[in-house]
Amino acid sequence: MKINAKKLSLTVFLPSLVLGLAACGGNNESGGEAKADENYPTKPISVIQGFDPGGGSDQLAQLTQPYLNEILDTTFTNEYVPGAAGAIAWTRLAQKTENDGYTLSITNSPMLMTNYIINEEFTYNLDDFDPIANVVTDPGIIVVASDSELETYEDFVKYLEENPGGLNVANSGVGGDDFFTQLKWMRETGLDMELIPYSGDGPSWQAVAGGEVEASFNNLGVVYSQVQAGNLKALAVFSEERMELLPDVPTVKELGHDVISGSARGYSAPKGLSEEVKQKLYDAFEQLKEDPEFVEGLEKVALPMDVKIGDEYAQFLKEDEELSREIWEDVKDEYEE
């Protein structure tokens, strides 16, 4: 009977507890925290990551945060909340965390936006965030097998002109950055090809190397070492200018098709940070960008630095969102049927 008594007390206790807490939560929104913001940060900053430890987001965190710790004189701690291509973490950031600057998240674009563009189940959107800074952008790249008959980007285009839809081209999954790069490219060039989704960048290039498909739209940082070793051939890259890592590979833009695309990673906070906190974070990334050791660290693992701070980052995300939405509206019937 002991049990029953316990259960009873719990049923009484719990609702009152929840109510009490809800009240507390409501009060925290506003209030004289201006002073606290001047001294920001006074406690560790938690970074919610939407992917597993050891993945791309974590990589960025491990490369970046030791420097940020020093610059801001605090500790960045990581919390991994993987699931639904990052959406579980970003939903939490948007809806459940305080906008006091002590909780940030690593935001991947275009994933951040394409998640909710494609699935209406996701309830967050770009307006829920204060983008702080983008750190790296891994540009898209077209690769083929080393023994492929397609020697250049022109060959690739010509083949598709003569055989519409005649090439199987891999991407890292429906809704991923490479998938959208393909859609953008197809729209720009008016060419058609067969899109073959794989579960990630790795399987996508491996399918090319193993001869299962003819080409892959991938990311430079991912395939760089394979291109260096001669396992893959790079045809063109989707960056604004040629990349230092592969200076001989032309950009798609210089070859006459205006498509810039890639996978970018940076930091964002929930909407409504105070100006002081925002500025402190902006300054930190400004300083980070100039640190030669940090720059070298990124180069070592073939991650192209692309620091965009504050409004510039926000603008970049907004534009990418609009373009992605437009493209998805065009093709969604094929996928939702």
Binding site: P53, G54, G55, Q59, Q62, Y224, S225, Q226, A229, V301
Partner: peptide, 18 residues
């Protein structure tokens, strides 16, 4: 896969050149 991530964080580019 996680081990590979670990190599990257140590500044070692995994791949055929490893």
């Amino acid at each position: 896969a996680v081990l590979l991530g670990g190599l990257m964080i140590h500044g070692i580019m995994p791949g055929p050149t490893l």
